[in-house]
């Protein structure tokens, strides 16, 4: 499965096409909007999956994110692109879904089995090891409190700056820095079985 190996808020050279699609989508062009969705859907889904640890919740969050994008598309700054906005809405959609469902965050085994790493290697042993690592990472990430997990994912896995994460999560930089520090220390202990 091919992946857009870029962040949602990539530099302008990559997003030149996106800017054009955004302008067209703002005029009500649904085909352009659909192409815009296709550009970001995997990233949004991957982030939602790491935040929720549930395939169904991640699908719902992805769908909800793009529906909200369509509603608010006129307000999006074409110069900045949809990237930062999508991060923020994905995190909020995941929070809303978790709050609405109020259920166990553990994913049923059949869902775990259907998950695959983004770029599986041909070698089956490597694939197995990769899956094991992913499952371990998922279970470890899920031991973190929701806010710390979101901050860590955006900072370390999406490669955003603390300032950007703070803006997306609607917190102060100091709060986000503290959340990331706590998450790093907990993650270190969890990964080494010290918790």
């Amino acid at each position: 499965m091919a992946f857009a190996a870029a962040r949602m808020d990539d530099p302008p050279e990559r997003t030149a096409g996106e800017a054009r699609l955004l302008v067209l989508a703002k005029t009500g062009d649904l085909d352009a909007f659909e192409q815009l969705v296709a550009l970001h859907e995997r990233r949004v889904f991957a982030l939602a999956l790491r935040l929720t640890s549930s395939v169904e919740d991640a699908k719902d969050a992805t769908q909800e994110t793009f529906i909200r994008l369509h509603r608010k598309i006129a307000q999006i700054d074409s110069a900045r692109g949809v990237g930062p906005w999508l991060y923020s809405v994905t995190v909020n959609a995941c929070r809303d879904i978790a709050r609405d469902r109020q259920r166990s965050r553990l994913v049923p085994m059949e869902n775990w089995a259907s998950l695959a790493p983004a770029d599986p290697v041909a070698n089956p042993e490597g694939l197995y090891a990769d899956r094991q690592r992913e499952e371990h990472l998922r279970s470890v990430l899920h031991c973190l409190p929701e806010k710390e997990r979101a901050a860590l994912l955006l900072r370390e896995m999406e490669g955003l700056s603390t300032e950007e994460v703070a803006r997306i999560l609607g917190n102060s930089e100091a709060t986000v820095r503290s959340q990331i520090c706590n998450a790093r220390l907990k993650l270190r202990k969890l990964l080494r079985g010290k918790l």
Binding site: E34, E41, A46, Q63, S114, L115, R184
Partner: peptide, 28 residues
């Protein structure tokens, strides 16, 4: 840990993104 996290590719599942797009289009 930081380097390991940063190196993880975005994970995915067997999701029919085309169907999801159709559903989004229907919804909007």
């Amino acid at each position: 840990d930081r380097a390991w996290l940063a190196s993880r590719p975005p994970e995915t599942a067997e999701v029919d993104f085309a169907a999801m797009r159709r559903e989004i289009r229907r919804e909007i």
